[in-house]
Simulated assay, not measured.
Amino acid sequence: MAEYHFVISVQKPLPHGGFAMGDWSSRITPEPGWSRQDTFDAIRTEFAKRYPEIGRACVTFFSLEPNQL
């Protein structure tokens, strides 16, 4: 399978006003047979593990592109 580059950005309202925001950019090689949705779910799950305070926030941006120019 080919390697892909992704960017995911999230936003979450804070209890006393304002927002927490975060993003993550990296590479992933999807497992054989994975769909785009499967890949998104895997990225989202790993994001939540790495950044638990905002891991399940609302996704405001997601990009998944082949990592080859």
Rank of each mutant, 00 (worst) to 15 (best):
C58Q: 12
R44Q: 10
I54Q: 13
S35F: 02
E53H: 08
F6P: 06
T29V: 15
R50F: 10
E65C: 08
H16V: 02
F47K: 13
A42L: 09
M21W: 00
T45R: 04
F19I: 10
G33C: 09
K49Y: 08
V7G: 05
Q11G: 00
V10K: 11
G17Y: 09
G33H: 02
V7I: 06
P66S: 07
F19S: 04
R44E: 07
T45V: 04
E3M: 09
F40E: 07
I43D: 00
G55E: 02
R36Q: 10
R36K: 03
S35H: 03
V59S: 07
R27V: 13
D23Y: 15
F61C: 13
P13W: 10
E31T: 11
F19D: 00
S26P: 11
A42N: 02
F47Y: 15
S9D: 09
F40N: 03
V7R: 05
H5Q: 15
A2T: 08
A20L: 09
Y51E: 13
A20V: 02
E46K: 08
S35R: 01
A42P: 05
G22D: 06
I54F: 07
F61G: 10
R44F: 07
E65I: 14
C58D: 09
A20N: 08
D38E: 01
E53Y: 13
R44M: 03
P52R: 12
E53G: 04
A57Y: 06
F62C: 05
G22V: 06
V59W: 12
T29C: 09
N67P: 11
T39A: 01
R50W: 05
S63C: 13
G55F: 00
M21G: 07
Q11L: 07
W24A: 05
L69S: 10
G17D: 04
Y51F: 14
P15M: 01
Y4M: 04
R36Y: 05
F62K: 11
I8A: 04
S63L: 14
D23M: 12
K12P: 08
I43L: 10
F19V: 13
V10D: 06
Y51I: 01
A57K: 00
L14C: 01
P66C: 00
A2K: 11
M21T: 08
F6Y: 14
K12C: 01
E46M: 00
M1V: 10
W34M: 12
G18Y: 05
G55M: 04
E3D: 14
I8V: 13
G33Y: 15
R44G: 01
P66H: 14
L64Q: 03
F6I: 07
E53S: 13
A42I: 03
F47I: 08
N67W: 03
S9M: 14
P15G: 01
D38P: 01
S26L: 13
K12V: 02
N67L: 06
